[in-house]
Amino acid sequence: MLTKRIIPCLDIKNGRTVKGTNFIDLRDAGDPVELGARYAAEGADELVFLDITATQEKRKTLSELALRIAHHINIPFTVGGGISSVEDVRVLLDNGADKISVNTAAFKNPGLILELSGVFGSQCIVLAIDAKREADGKYYVYLNGGRVATETNCLDWAKQGVELGAGEILLTSMDHDGTRNGFAVELTGLLAESLPVPVIASGGGGTMAHFSEIFKAGKADAALAASVFHFKEIHIPVLKEYLNDEGISIRI
């Protein structure tokens, strides 16, 4: 049976992980490859590496990082952050990335999704959406790492993205991200039930029960988290045993 996926996310700046970690036993906790390999060994189902570098050197460091990850890590991984062209994607996939994620560039130029899925196939194109609930009770798309509001409804953009060829949606709820009060169950469920592609829920995972909730009530296909794994508040093997005991299909 196809399992739900647990996905640690690593934020990368200038080739190093940021936000810190609590892995005192790692030789170099700032090395995304060593941290990623650790998660893979612990049973993570996939990894996401999100580059938040804002310099001209970015493309080169990201492609070099993809190559190092692909050499050392034996599970699938997605690379994202500032990807805006077929050439960006070609280099990353050639260097061994399994999927790439696009966000702001795809919103500004939806044809990018069509172009990328046409050249590389939908299976490797993840559309990342940052969403926030406004006073009217509806969820809207935000750009540039959540700094720029739009007037576009989250579900409308997700549907359009899938029609254009996105093979997965990585949904981050800005209302939940960083709170550790639980994932966005309602919004995730809305997308997961409306879309014919998998939905990865991101933002708010703080306890093992939150993961169970987002899979059961939120219908998520995968759950992504960062700091709860980095700071060892949740240990992946323990989480997976717990979810298995909860009756959720999980790889152990």
């Binding site: 049976m1 196809l2 399992t3 996926r5 189902d45 939908s122 299976q123 093979g167 997965e168 014919p196 592609v197 998998p198 296909d221 995968a222 790889r251």
Partner: peptide, 11 residues
């Protein structure tokens, strides 16, 4: 009503 493509870990 499973999703296509199948993406993930299966037995």
């Amino acid at each position: 009503p499973l999703k296509v493509p199948q993406i993930g870990w299966n037995n």
